[in-house]
Amino acid sequence: MKKITYVINGEARHLHVEPNDVLLDVLRDKLGLKSPKCGCDRGDCGACAVLLDGKSVRSCLILAIECDGMAIETVEGIGQDGLSALQEKFIALNSFQCGFCAPGVTISATELLRNNPRPTLDDVKEALSGNLCRCTGYTPIIEAVLQAGNEGGEHGKL
């Protein structure tokens, strides 16, 4: 058991973890952040993605202990000061059906838009290529990211 610190969604949290605890389980079970989902437990589906010091990672593949002192952002944090421009587009365009992929998709797309506020279609497809969705065929997700890039990028709500 080791005591570590995360800055989660802007708030410092101290916690004890075992050396073999996986970040996804710690987020979900110890910190009660349920937005990251376990879809495959081996890094294939992207539903567990979170931002670690601003970079998207698959939290099912990372040990919690490795993230000591780092900033972690989940979808709970992205929406906490009101919906982001991206989330507004996701809602308006019916981007999600079952919604299980939504948290991971939101993380990947948020990372993209922060680094590349006006992405091209190919940029968006590539950024989302590690997030599997079985319901939508991706089109309404991609469209929302493109629109958020064109409109939301300006007022920096991402």
Binding site: R28, G79, F90, I91, S95, A102, P103
Partner: peptide, 21 residues
């Protein structure tokens, strides 16, 4: 109007089976 579950899902708040504790 957006579908009734659109916002819950986009905000990562939808509670699936494994989220029941």
């Amino acid at each position: 109007a957006p579908r009734p579950d659109a916002a819950t899902k986009a905000m990562g708040r939808a509670r699936y089976c494994a989220d029941v504790q």
